[in-house]
Design a binder for these strands. Sequence first.
DNA 1: TTTTGAGTTGTTCGA
DNA 2: GTCGAACAACTCAAA
Length: 485
Amino acid sequence: MARASTPVTIVWFRHDLRLDDQPALAAAAARGAVVPVFIWAPEEEAPWAPGAASRWWLHQSLEKLAAGLAKAGAPLVIRRGPSLTALAALAKECGATHVAWNRRYEPAVVRRDTDIKKRLAADGLEVESFNGGLLFEPVHVATKEGRPYQVFTPFWRALLGRPEPVEPAAAPRKLRAATADLRSLTVEALDLLPTIDWAGTMRSTWNPGEAGARKRLDTFLESRLGGYGTERDRPDHEGTSALSPHLHFGEISPRRVWHAVREAAGGRPAAKITGSPEVYLRELGWREFASHLLYHFPHTSDQPLRADYARFPWANDPVGLRAWQRGRTGFPIVDAGMRQLWATGWMHNRVRMIVASFLVKDLRVSWLEGARWFWDTLVDADLAANTLGWQWAAGCGADAAPYFRVFNPTSQGTKFDPDGAYVRRWVPPLARLGAGDIHEPAAADGPDLARAGIVLGRDYPEPIVDHAEARKRALDALKTVSRSR
DNA sequence: TTTTGAGTTGTTCGA
DNA sequence: GTCGAACAACTCAAA
């Protein structure tokens, strides 16, 4: 293939499926012609290759990205891995002089990318990588002693003490395509969609892609940011941004979100922002913290950060695990959450904590089992966030959560879903139960159950554990870990 | 090096 | 119904 007179840059799309504020794309467009490529190589991320829900999302998002790139003038090329082979072949075909991408921070990906960078450079290609996925990269945030933070609050203070993240850059108006005729797979050929179509509710819930992400953000800023501080805890309301899957796939940049929230809060520096907007910015801080932790403690996706938890006496309870996965524990708020997850690929954050606490404390099933289930079912499955969340819930992660913090699923339900609307929506058999009974149907009077058309054990399960006893067992088990230090 | 203050999201019990 | 205390001990981060 003849080399074009203008430099050609391959832009390797990964978790940055957007045109807006996309540093690798911007750099390539500024230099000359652009060959955008997506390479499907899940085996390179094993054992955390994208799960079923993530693949569904990816399919939609790739179609949107392909349309956006085609409209801008440079059609997306889709290939299969190995990534190195695909990139090297593509470079030859299109006469590329440069390869550019935005960095990812998962340990397996870092290893792979480092190797690819070296090998492509050895082939004579200029390789550049950018920060398109975080406000600040892990190597740039450290304690005064130069070590990675392991506690959120000082980490957050350190972020606020830095200059603001750079302002987001607009999408390039026009892209110049390479002259070469490049073959590409279709999105369908990647076979990302489930063979049985279980995604109906997902389709009606989500709008993957850059435009959908931007719309979510706008809606959130307009109608939810002001009340976020308290409303975010209400699974029966739409009080959260629901940006997590969009952020995970990079359909919107965290810098874009950060500065949009700042603007909506009056445009002051982040350190000066208080109230609900600060609470939301802090959540972006948690996203940063999760990446930071996984980057610096690369074993934690599979092993506890606190080494002494390696000998925690987890229960082998496939029946309990199955009941939890399918939303059949007999605890309505837990079951509602698990069924929302199954139907939509997403679960409200408050409920994630409740179901996680139930799995690891009431059932004493390992956090890794929970992490794996979430990994397969969440559309926002993100290795860093998933690891942080599960290790936090299990008490073996990067914070000093007191050992006695065991969520009571009934009181959490009455507190955060006071009318039972969330349970009614996701557990229809309980829909006719009154607010006073809906979070504890096993304690309801017989006539009330009969009026609601419920026979426990037939229409809805009896509780699979006695929470008070389970709590005692969990505390005893945790003391064992503590004493054995 | 040592010391000190502090650590996302809870529950229960008894006054 | 409301309120405060107890629930362990440990490790992190900074002084």
